[in-house]
């Protein structure tokens, strides 16, 4: 994965939109406003997969529970009930347990993805070059999965 990107190096308009949102003061809120672009939403889902796997693969699965609790508390959201379980389910769904998130409505799943991506993949915690590389990877995944079968 390349680490020398800039915003302009991002191949697609959807990728640039996501990078712009991640650079704003409230990334989660900004990302949530991208819901009217199906391509951007699909790319956001792939970016979520990439960001979560880079953060949690190889770690103790219990770290997901602690991370969700910290995230929701930081966002002043209830951290002890349904929302926390759904957030954990959405994260673990891309770590090899897809069945955990089957019952979660699309809108709630999208909101949670916005919060999690807005936290895991934003500057300055993630340097811009790495962030661009993450979006490139998400774009590559999207292109691969969108490719029609021959």
């Amino acid at each position: 994965m390349g680490q020398s990107g800039t915003l302009d190096n991002t191949a697609t308009a959807a990728g640039r939109l996501l990078l712009e949102s991640l650079g704003e003061e409230s990334p989660a809120r900004s990302l949530s406003r991208r819901h009217d672009s199906p391509r951007t939403v699909r790319l956001l889902r792939e970016l979520f997969t990439v960001a979560v796997r880079r953060s949690f693969v190889g770690r103790d699965p219990r770290d997901v529970t602690a991370y969700v609790r910290d995230l929701l508390e930081y966002q002043s959201l209830p951290a002890g009930g349904q929302l926390a379980r759904e957030a954990e389910a959405v994260i673990r769904s891309v770590l090899g347990e897809p069945e955990l998130a089957y019952g979660i409505p699309d809108l709630r799943r999208f909101e949670l993805i916005c919060h999690i991506v807005g936290d895991l993949a934003r500057p300055p915690g993630v340097p811009t070059a790495e962030l661009v590389a993450l979006v490139h990877q998400a774009e590559w995944r999207l292109a691969r999965f969108d490719r029609p079968e021959s």
Binding site: R62, T65, V68, R69, P78, A79, G80, G81, Q82, L83, A84, R85, E88, A89, E99, L100, G103
Partner: peptide, 23 residues
């Protein structure tokens, strides 16, 4: 039964701090 809620109830019984409200 919701799988994650069931798992959380077990972990709660083991003394972990896990989300078991609103079940």
């Amino acid at each position: 039964l919701p799988a994650l809620a069931a798992e959380m109830l077990i972990r709660d019984a083991l003394g972990e701090t896990v989300p078991v409200d609103e079940i």
